[in-house]
Every structure is written in C-alpha cells, then in structure tokens.
Nucleic acid binder design. Sequence first.
RNA 1: GCCUGGGUGGCGGAACAGGUAGACGCAAGGGACUUAAAAUCCCUUGAGGCUUGACCUCGUGCGGGUUCAAUUCCCGCCCCAGGCACCA
Length: 864
Amino acid sequence: MEERYDPKTVEPKWQGFWDETRLFAVSEDPEKEKYYLLEMFPYPSGKIHMGHVRNYTIGDVVARYKKMRGFNVLHPMGWDAFGMPAENAAIANDSHPATWTYENIDYMRGQLKKMGFSYDWERELATCRPEYYRWEQWLFLKMYEKGMAYRKESYVNWCESCQTVLANEQVEAGLCWRCGEQVRQKKLRQWFFRITDYAEDLLQYCDQLPGWPEKVTTMQKNWIGKSIGAKIRFPLEQVPDGYEDAITVFTTRQDTLFGATFMCLAPEHPLVPELARGTGQEKAVSEFIDRMGLQDRSTRGLEKYEKEGVFTGAYCINPMTKARMPIYTANFALMEYGTGAVMSVPAHDQRDFDFARKYDLPIIVVVQPPGEKLDGKSMTQAYAEPGIMVNSGEFEGMSNEDAKEAIADHLKKNDLGEKTVNYRLRDWGISRQRYWGAPIPMVHCDDCGIVGAREEDLPILLPEDADLLEGGKSPLPSMESFTRTECPQCGKPARRETDTMDTFVESSWYFERYCSPRYEEGMFKKEAADYWMPVDQYIGGVEHAILHLLYSRYFTRVLNDLGLVKYKEPFTRLLTQGMVCKETMACPDHKFLFPDEVQGTGEERTCVRCGKPVAVGRVEKMSKSKKNVIDPNILLDQYGADTTRLFCLFAAPPERDLEWSEQGVEGGHRFLNRVWRLFYNWCDLIKGASGFDPKELDEEMTKVYRKSHETIKRVSTDIEERFHFNTAISAVMELVNEMQGIEPGKDVRGRAACIRFAMETVVLLLSPMVPHFAEELWQTLGHHHSVLLAPWPTHDESALVKDELLIVVQVNGKLRGRFTIPAEADDAAIKERALADENALKFIEGKPIKKVIVVKKKLVNIVV
RNA sequence: GCCUGGGUGGCGGAACAGGUAGACGCAAGGGACUUAAAAUCCCUUGAGGCUUGACCUCGUGCGGGUUCAAUUCCCGCCCCAGGCACCA
C-alpha cells in the first residue's frame, strides 16, 4: 500500500478496471429484482458544469447502493443532442451542428468517465442520431393517424431577424433574447400534440405520485389550471354574415351574470373586425389590433400593465337582464384562455372594475357582502368575496355559492349555456422553423393535402450537407434535395414538411429507449421496457418541474393508449436537487469576474487586470453570465473525482441548494487522507486477522464494534429513506474519529479482527460515495473482487444494546442533571435514582412533587 | 396577488416518532512536532453571568397558545428564495 493517497493513480486504475470487467453492463434478469435509476440527460453544450456533477453524483450513490443491495440496476446515460445552441455555435464557428455536437459529446463523455459514474455506457444514446429520431417520427405518424397530432394556425412569438419562432422563455421584456429585435405575434400553421385530451388524467394522477415532491405536483396542477364554471351565450344585436348569432364566454362566476354590463374580446378574436364593420369604429379597432400584435404575450402580461381597449361599435344582450352590453376589444382578454371572450362584471372583478372606471361603464352590484351595502357609484374596488345575491331577479337573497348552481341550471334549462370545465393547459406546439431537430415526417401534396410519410421511408433524414444561414433561418425550406419528394398516396411530386420537432419531444421518451437502445424493430423492445420500466428513481433539476416532466407523463399516456406500454406514469419516484451556488465577484471596471480573475482572499480581493478592489456580491446559482462558476476540471485535477463527489454530497442534503466552498472541498479531501493514513498504519496488523467473538472483546473494542453497527444502521437509513448523504457521511466520520483514538496494542481477544471489521465497514459504507478510494482500500484488505460486488453490510440489533444508559433528569422541564444506570434497570429504579439526584434536589427542595414522568431509557421529568 | 419551500452558532448544516438544541464539517483561538513553514496531531469555541461548577440565566425569525416537556404541534405576523401570474 502506498503511504500517500494519490487520486491520480487510484482513479484511472479503477475506471479502467470497471470498463474492462464491464461491471455496469446489465441485461434483463427475471431472477433479480430490477432498479431503474435515471438522471436527466445533459444537453451537450461543451463541458459539464457543477450542476451536472452534483446531479450525477447523487444518482451514482443510489445506483451503487442499490447494486450492493442486490438489485439489477439499470443506470444509463445519453445526450439530449438536438437544439438551437448547436446551430448558433456552428454559425459562429463556421462549422456544422453535427460536428460541434459530436465533439462536445466526446469531450463530455470523457469528463463523466473521469468522475467514475457507474453508467452502462453500452446503452449510450444521442437523440440527434437517425436510429433514435427514426422512432420518434414513427410515433408521430401513429399519433397523426389517431388524431393526436394535428396542424392548426396559431399565434407565436416571432423574431423577424432570427427568422424563427421563439419559446415564451426566449422572449425577454418583449425583445428577442439573442438579437434584441422586437418580438411580434405571428400567425403560423403549426403542428400540435393534443395534450389537452389528457389534462384531467394528468391532473388526477398528480395525487397518485407519492414519490414525487409535492412542490412539483402542485406546480403541475397549477399549470394544468383546472377551473369549474360555465359557458354562457350572449346573443348579438347584429350578427355578421357567416357567424354564430351569439358570443360564448367562459366564466367561473356565473353567479354574477346579472352584473355583466359589457363584453370584452381578445384583440385576436376573429369576431372583432367583423363586429366593427360599418360602425365607424373600424379604424380605431384595426389600429388597436395592430398595436396589440406588436406586444408579445409576456409583455402584455406584465403586472400593472394598464388595461385598455376600444369599443367595437357593436352590442350584445345580457341573457338575464336583457340589457344592451357594449362589446369592447381589450388587451387583458386572452385569446388562448377560455373562449377569448369575457363577460365583464365590474362590481365583482378588479380588472373589469378598472376598465369600467376608465371608460365610464355602468357598475351594478349583484353580490352584497354581509353587513354592508355596496354601491356601484361609490365603490373604490371590486368585491370578489362571497355574499348574498341582490339585483338578480329570482336568485335574489341566495348565497352566491348557491346561485352558481342555480344559475347554471337555469342557463342549461333555457339553452343559454351550461356548466363546463376549463383548463389553462394548451396543446403542445411542437413545430420549430429550425434546422437542428428531428424532421416532422409529413408530406404536402397538391392533390391529397397533408399525408404522412410511409413507415418504410423512415427515418426522414435530416440532410447533413446543409449550409446554415446567417441569423438562424432554417435552410431546409430552400433545400430542393430535401423538400422534393413524391406523395406517399398518389405518387405525384410533393413537398416535405420542413418544420422540425421541439427538442422536448426527444426527451419525452428517451428513458424507454434506454431499455433497448439498439433495437431496430421499434421504439423499444417490449419485453425490455416491461422489465425495466417505470423508472424507479428519477433525479434532476427542478427547472424541469413542469415542461419536461409533464410532457414525459403525457407521452407515456400516449404510448399506453397505443398499447405499447402497460403503465401510465414513467417515474415512480422523483428527486429534484437544488442548485449549485457561489458568490459573485465584480470589479468596478471589468464587471463580473471569474474566480481566476481575482487575486487574494477575504477582504483583500483585487482584480487581476486593474488591481482595483473586488466587490463580493450575493450567493447565486452558478451561471456563465455571472461568472460565478467553478470548472469541475479544476477540481478533478486538484483533488480528484472522489473528493469532488464527497464535497457535493456532504455540504448539503440533495434537495437543498449547495453553496460552493473551497474550504469544504479541502475538508473532504482531508477526511479521505485521514482514512487512508489509518489504513496505512494498521494495514499489516489487520491483514490476516479474521473471526472474533463480540462477547470476548475488551471494553474499547466493544465500543468500536457497537459504533460500527450503529453507523451501518444510520448510513443505511440515511441513504435508503431520505437520500441524506450529508448525515450518512458525518456518521462515518464519527466512526473514523472513534477509531483514530485507538492504540493498537497487542492482538488479544480479537482486537485485530474487530479493527478489521470496523475498517471494512468504513470502506463498504463509503464505497457508493467515493468508489475509487473504496476499491483501492478494499483491495489492500486482501479482497480480489470489486467492492461493489460485496453485499451491503447489515447491522446486528443485538450489537447496539448498551449495558449502561444515560438518563437525563429534568425538573419542571429543565435539564438539571444526568446519570448512568445499568440497562436492565426498570422505570421504578430509574425514577428512584433520579429523585436522589443531587443537583435536581436543589430545585425540588421544599416544594411538593406533583408528578414524575419517566420516558423509557431516556429521561425523567420531575414536576414540582 | 396566489402557490410552494425555508428562517437554528462566525459559516455549511444535525436533531429519525414532542423528550439532553448545536452531531459532523469549516472557520477562529491556543498548544505539540519542526531551525522555520506546510502537513499532521491534541485542546477550546452559542451568548451572558458569577460563587469557575456535575453551576446559573438566556437562546432555534417575531407574538401568542396546547403540553410535565415545543426547533418539532396549533393560531396570528415578519423576512428570504423559487414557481405562477390580467386565467375571466
């Protein structure tokens, strides 16, 4: 054994060993219980960051632990390899997205291997490979056949200079995040998945995911946004040609129908220009529509954005009061929600109230708060709380809650409307006018319309010889070689669809593909998916709480409906780990600084370029833009993978944010060195030792023996039940601390063997966390197989029994003394001893004892 | 505004089921080894008090409550972080 711990020799040695022995390669084994552990796969952006390191370290501990527990563990890794950054980088470097992506993958794979993660690399996949997206296209065709995929016209965020659609997240304050161009709403024909068909099911099952953090399921519930209300038809005074004779609204407050005094339509509502026609309002209305079109949805949604609108010149009729209601088009009415039309009740809705005051519209109170009398003229804000119905005809005097039901019934009876449920969730728009994505396998034929590609023509290959265009416009539409095809139905010349799919589509089923990643007959081999799925434990960042996780749940339902899988939920348990954070540093001249652009420590930090003092900012999520990042390569180089892993696990429990600390890393490294030295010193003594009788041990060894079992118990439950690796590690540290105090002495009464047992315990318990380190020490103990193949130790309850107990004495709940007593002492004896406690007596003195509470084997509380 | 988390020493964090608050680590201080430093090892370390003890008082964001006993349960508030947000 080397005297000094040198990760640079230890780590490559064991990584090589694991590779050569194919230790992590798995296959379906019906004899063994399976465990599918999955971490969210990375986008190959260039190199891994601390967030990845943390995420994958947590997963690796669980995977290794479960393997030692005897499970058949599937632990795969791959690449979420399509997406815009590859295109942008390719344009900037004058290369190709594929080149860029595959180079990054190669580099990042190397980094992950250096971390010693226990992946079955034989299952590695990259979503940009035709072997992968081929089956995504196949599924798209199936979904198209079933009506689950469709095309419709909708408004999207469009950046003219980038020539593409932007996701809502890519619009910052109304401007394009890349070029700063004003984003506009553009009407485009786009492909959609009918996720709204599953809104109710996705919602219901949120309560049947006990292994998920509640915060994620509530976020999903809110996103789905179910609300129960009614659809109500308001007859139009003048019906434009070719339109229905009424406007339908969705409301959750049908009880306030008698107070509806005007109507608001979204600017995008198709009726708006029609209604304005011939009223003299055409110009005002069309100007308003144009102006609103320039505002993207998120700007329009900003708080305190002033409510404004324009009268269309038309009226509709309140079906209850028969009052004429002016129809406005207003910026706060959203086309995407409900029907795009709002019945406005200014007395009981703040937005309507603001609008009514601004445009001087009537305000009629129909719900009166208890013990108060509101008046439409004098009220200063809307009243949205419960109350008693007034000004409401036959519903007068009811509670507004009862009126909701009664009015809904009335509407239904008179064919004016009906109860309905509305969801905030919208269908999933998957079209991207981008090159680096999976082509949507559809064909446009002049005669047959839109036709799906033939299955045998799949994959529809993304052409590799594309010349990317400046600004990001997709080259596909102008590539004859790609677009020219023949109609799969009639054989005439036709044109290929040139939209590609949103990259969230790839990540919605990759976990199924891992079950049989090289399978060529379908998306996945049924027996393999039946064996491995669902994922037992999924681990990733909370930033995917809604989109990725909801889409994956949706896709699993689609596969279930198509009869391809037996389950509905893909992820049984979910762990969302916290962010990795670090303080920011900034120089007055050079703004944010990377850690290596700063000299000195503490108060003395200065900028390397100008020497000015550096301002230390708050602790924030590591990000390139704030430059508060630590490159994992530096850690690997300086301390090695095991120390890096240990730090990530020890500094905070996984679900909480992790604050970077150089000293914390040092501390972890010191601990490993301490353990190493302990082994080095005692290696010879314990090498051949084996077999001892716990009953024969001397006092010192009995303590070590008991502590070992206590530690096994604590570490096992910390990992198994809570993933609290920080406390698991501190438990092992305690055991090591205890052992450090031992004088080896002579090998009598099983001393050497007991020490060996404790040392083996330390190695086994640490092995999921610092695997290279553990393998090396395991080997020095004389073992010839990987420590991973050793069974996880189990504690012996009888070894935990102490012969003396520490009992705490309280007087009136305050700690006043303590004593030890033989473990077999009964409650009466403990009580007697407590009442005799010297210090406690000082507080009892003179006062009558009212009550004595004895908590078994722990505490006595004397009440005086 | 709504929905989630979370507020514990100088710091990261422990306390599993109401029962010794502060495990473990970091930092700091003192000491040993060394010509010296690094590394390592040992000791001290929530605040305050004095009678320096097997001592006392206070102490888990703030204010109440339940209980023999509350970081833990209940009610009201304050602050921080994240998510959603003109959703009718």
